[in-house]
Design a protein around this nucleic acid. Structure first.
Lengths: 346, 346
DNA sequence: CTTGATTTTGATAACGTTATCATTTTATTA
DNA sequence: TAATAAAATGATAACGTTATCAAAATCAAG
């Protein structure tokens, strides 16, 4: 028994017009229908097992109540929680998520955009796979970008204040007495993310009048997968720690890098945080269960997701003029086990 | 300029019938259309910026080319990779994913099922949130369940052979000389998962003629979130390691538990693997980047996703008789840093 | 060239809902 | 109670595609 009963069948069953039935079953505000007929319709619907055909409704309305989430890679620990935030928010509004991954492949990303248009999804939350991602094909579709890159002027964006977060960490390390802080960054696929970090570091150090040189800057290639990044990071940090560095602290631009540093420190018997403090960035699960647990600059991914969703839905549901909105959320320093006051080397 | 051009507009533009245009633009096998007219249509379509209205097509066909993935919690590290596997497989077939979370809430899960039906999704991959999840509402919809619970007879299922995997780990520990192996399980929400584990342990030990008692069995409540589970696990394992146990190895029923054990061992200065071997189960990222890295019984989640997708699509696209298929995949022991030969305690 | 087979194109009816009216019923007021 | 306003219901035309069948064009063979 295929759920094939239509609104017309229900109408026939209860002897009312199809219009009235529609009003009862799918009408918005339950205005304009008598309690008695309402019951008549509902019981008839239940009797013959009517299930709304959303396909027909979507078609008629040219709305899907679906939004896309386009990201590079779901296994990147950054995204699941973000998506969860989106999920929880849009549920309130009756929307659902179509999840699109592009594996960092611009061709797939473009196909996904085309899919979004052709499927007439109502909007999209997009983490662009590269700084020049071609969004033109999306036309007037309501979208929110997950980025703080300034490459995307004219678009709504939302992201954490990475620079502010970084300064938070550096300030805390300074407070703890650290005067030789190393910067550990990965050349990410998304733009020259490391250049502003380096600049921020230089500025910070010169402001505080503490030493910094490029020797205190560790770089490594970030790969597509977290795991590969980790092993590359480990290699880079092994080299760094070998030449006996004066650094008493490392700030890493993400938790994977930080955990790699922590791993190597453990490997070499360097005590964290007694001999070396390490602070990461993001707040992924692995950092909460490592030993010691990882101090990190948290990006509240669930909140980002939630806000992105809210912003998007407002945009979808108010077809009025909409000024582009750029949201930048502060980061939060979470102090855990991997950071502490500097201690004299014996 | 809304992408409002329809097939009829294209037909008018190129002076052909709407039927021919449809054949060119959306027809399946490019049979039955002359190269010359094909070009005529395509250039007209390009000229007026036609974008296929999938809503109309879906409605007409009563097919969406969308499948649902219904899980409890995307932030559970088990799922993202699984979904990625599904994603990569279904892309070949032109399907997309609608992602539904239920936060372990049966009410939400039920709503999601209703949504699946009303949206006329073509099929669903479902990880039931509890052993008695009510799947009846899904009717004849093609579904594949991610479980090896025998509660779901009559349904296609796919899962790893957890028991076989557990034995793999125990055998390896035995080989390494361990004769006092502790079992660390969490009472999961999904059935009395711990009871068969205990039984397997007992059987194993009696077969090998080695000692086991309930004292070597550590239990803790598993919570909804990985993080909470971790801290509960840590509490349980702290108590266990306090009473000086003869155990030289711990088998944990998942990686979070194993990492909790590892964490506590590090905390107490117990050397892993020299003084204590630890083996987990699942193969999550955190175990690959912990120190030491975690030996684990891997469940190939990407493969499960891929197979589930394949199975589902076969089911969708061959409306013939379909025998219910239960796939059980072997686990694989991945030896990393947290396990090694037993060493005499001094 | 015709004839018949084959390929290519055209005309048109669905699909099930929503939206827009028109119509009927009920409530309100003079 | 009649006249008017308001509320409730009904009739029907879309939405843009696909599918079915009919018609026309092309090809093959005698």
């Amino acid at each position: 028994m295929n759920s094939k009963a239509t609104i017309v069948d229900v109408a026939r069953e209860c002897g009312l017009s199809q219009a009235t039935v529609a009003r009862v079953l799918n009408g918005q505000k339950e205005i304009q229908v008598k309690e008695k007929t309402r019951k008549r319709v509902l019981s008839a619907a239940r009797k013959i097992g009517y299930e709304r055909n959303a396909l027909a409704a979507n078609f008629r309305r040219q709305k899907t109540k679906n939004i896309a989430i386009s990201i590079a890679d779901l296994t990147n620990p950054f995204f699941p929680e973000l998506i969860k935030g989106v999920q929880n928010k849009i549920r309130e509004y009756g929307y659902s998520i179509v999840q699109l991954n592009n594996e960092w492949n611009p061709k797939i990303e473009q196909d996904n955009f085309k899919y979004i248009i052709q499927s007439r999804l109502d909007g999209a939350i997009i983490s662009p796979s590269h700084p020049r991602a071609n969004l033109k094909i999306l036309g007037q579709l309501p979208i929110v970008l997950l980025t703080n890159s300034n490459e995307f002027s004219g678009y709504d964006t939302i992201a954490n204040d990475s620079k502010g977060g970084m300064i938070l960490a550096l300030e805390r390390l300074f407070e703890l007495g650290h005067r030789n802080i190393a910067l550990f960054t990965g050349g990410s696929m998304m733009s020259a993310g490391s250049s502003w970090r380096l600049q921020t570091m230089k500025d910070f150090c010169s402001n505080r009048n503490i030493f910094f040189s490029e020797d205190l800057c560790i770089k490594c290639d970030m790969s597509v997968s977290s795991l590969e990044s980790f092993s590359q990071a480990r290699a880079a940090i092994r080299k760094f720690i070998n030449k006996d560095t004066p650094a008493t602290a490392i700030f890493a631009s993400n938790d994977i890098l930080a955990l790699a540093a922590l791993h190597v420190a453990n490997e070499k018997g360097i005590k964290v945080p007694d001999e070396l403090s390490i602070i990461g960035m993001d707040g992924i699960l692995s950092g909460e269960i490592s030993y010691p647990t990882l101090t990190t600059v948290e990006k509240n991914r669930s909140q980002i997701g939630s806000l992105a969703a809210k912003s998007l839905i407002e945009k979808i549901e108010t077809p009025l003029e909409w000024q582009t909105k750029k949201i930048i959320l502060p980061c939060k320093l979470i102090e855990r086990g991997s950071s502490g006051p500097v201690r004299e080397k014996k």
